[in-house]
């Protein structure tokens, strides 16, 4: 807007009517340090000279400033100072003044926001607490969602349990398989050991026979076929060679062994497939017993429709405790759910379900039990004709 060559005239030089800004500027100069005050007069004299030169151009401005310059517009002064090039002391001091104002304004603003935050948070907290209180006491939405989440949780738990069961079954099968393998390996080792043992035994026997023959009966053991082997020493050697070369005798043994070698395989297969089957049976049994126990824990036995007994009301019954008892009209039909009290003891008050679906307790001497299914139809016909 303004250049170094043509500085803008100061407001108090061009217009005497702006008294308030002038006072502000004087207070500004009072706040300056002595050093800045020393430098000020020289600059002012320069500026006044330049202002007098360029006065005709900028003269119309003060009138506009005057017309719009209301009482509170003193803060336009720092802006004018800041934009012009009066020098460092002038430039700095209006800004410092401005910063003081700004600081104070900021402080007020901060105070306002502080109070606002405080009250706001207080009211917000109070409202939140009230809402929480309502949620906890209300047995409607909160309870139902809670139950739903519990159901979901239990479902996830069941699925996880099932997955773990499958995994453990797999691990058990795996382990049993490797156990079988190791057992078979051990049997193989045993067979080898026995074979080598008997091989050694045969050699020992053979050596003893040789010894007996060499010492003419003083050491070793006499061979069974002494009379024969006396004449034919070669036959024994042939037998031994046959045994070692797995000749005719061994081939017969092998055939029989191959025949019975299906047994362990069958046993192994049975173990592999039968073990999970037995495990499954066991688990289902456990589950059924668990469900029965759980339902009994709720105070109601599992209802078996085929064994369900029906009864007919002999008299009207007005419940004294409507929460636990159920109303009866004479001739009403009902299903007897339980002849026991919630603790499982025999009771004179039975739990029934009426035709309306209401479940409650009634005195046993107000009803008569209908014995058979045919009789129910008969009674139904009776009630219909009446």
């Amino acid at each position: 807007m303004s250049s170094t060559a043509v500085p803008r005239p100061k407001p108090w030089e061009t217009s005497a009517s702006l008294e308030e800004p002038q006072r502000n500027a004087q207070s500004l100069s009072a706040m300056m340090t002595s050093n800045q005050q020393d430098s000020r007069p020289t600059e002012e004299s320069n500026n006044s000279n330049s202002a007098s030169e360029s006065a005709p151009e900028v003269l119309p401005r003060p009138a506009a400033l005057n017309s719009s310059g209301t009482y509170g517009e003193s803060n336009t002064i720092p802006g004018i100072y800041g934009n012009s090039n009066y020098g460092i002391p002038y430039d700095n001091n209006p800004y410092s003044m401005n910063s003081i104002y700004g600081n104070s304004i900021g402080r007020y603003g901060y105070g306002g926001s502080y109070y606002g935050n405080n009250y706001g948070s207080f009211y917000g907290g109070g409202y939140g607490a009230g809402a929480g209180y309502g949620m906890n006491n209300g047995s409607g939405l909160g309870e139902s969602t809670k139950a739903t989440f519990q159901l979901i949780e239990s479902l996830i738990g069941a699925v996880t349990g099932f997955a773990q069961m499958l995994e453990s079954t797999y691990m058990a099968t795996h382990n049993s398989f490797f156990t079988m393998i190791s057992v078979a390996e051990q049997f193989g080792n045993l067979k080898e050991m026995l074979g080598s043992f008997f091989g050694i035994f045969a050699i020992m026997k053979f050596l003893k026979k040789i010894l007996y023959r060499a010492t003419k009966g003083r050491l070793g053991i006499p061979p069974k076929n002494f009379a024969e082997s006396e004449g034919s020493k070669n036959k024994l050697i042939e037998d031994f060679q046959k045994f070692n070369d797995s000749g005719t005798i061994n081939s017969n043994e092998k055939a029989t062994r191959r025949k019975i070698s299906w047994k362990p395989l069958l046993f192994f297969l049975m173990a592999v497939f039968g073990f999970p089957y037995l495990l499954n049976k066991f688990i289902t049994k456990l589950q059924t017993s668990g469900t029965i126990r759980a339902s009994q824990g709720n105070g109601s036995e599992p209802i078996d429709p085929s064994k369900l007994e029906f009864a007919r009301a002999l008299y009207d019954f007005v419940p004294e405790n409507p929460e636990m008892e159920v109303a009866l009209k004479k001739g009403d039909l009902m299903a007897i759910l339980s002849k026991k009290d919630p603790l499982g003891r025999d009771s004179d008050w039975w739990k029934v379900r009426t035709k309306n679906g209401n479940i409650g307790y009634i005195p046993y001497n107000y009803i008569e039990i209908i014995k058979r299914r045919k009789k129910i139809e008969h009674v139904d016909d009776e009630t219909r004709t009446h």
Binding site: E325, D341, P342, D348, N365, Y366
Partner: peptide, 15 residues
């Protein structure tokens, strides 16, 4: 005409 109901068990008593 209806008979007196038998004594109530504990869980049916209102008191």
């Amino acid at each position: 005409r209806p008979p007196r109901p038998p004594p109530k068990p504990l869980h049916l008593r209102t008191e």
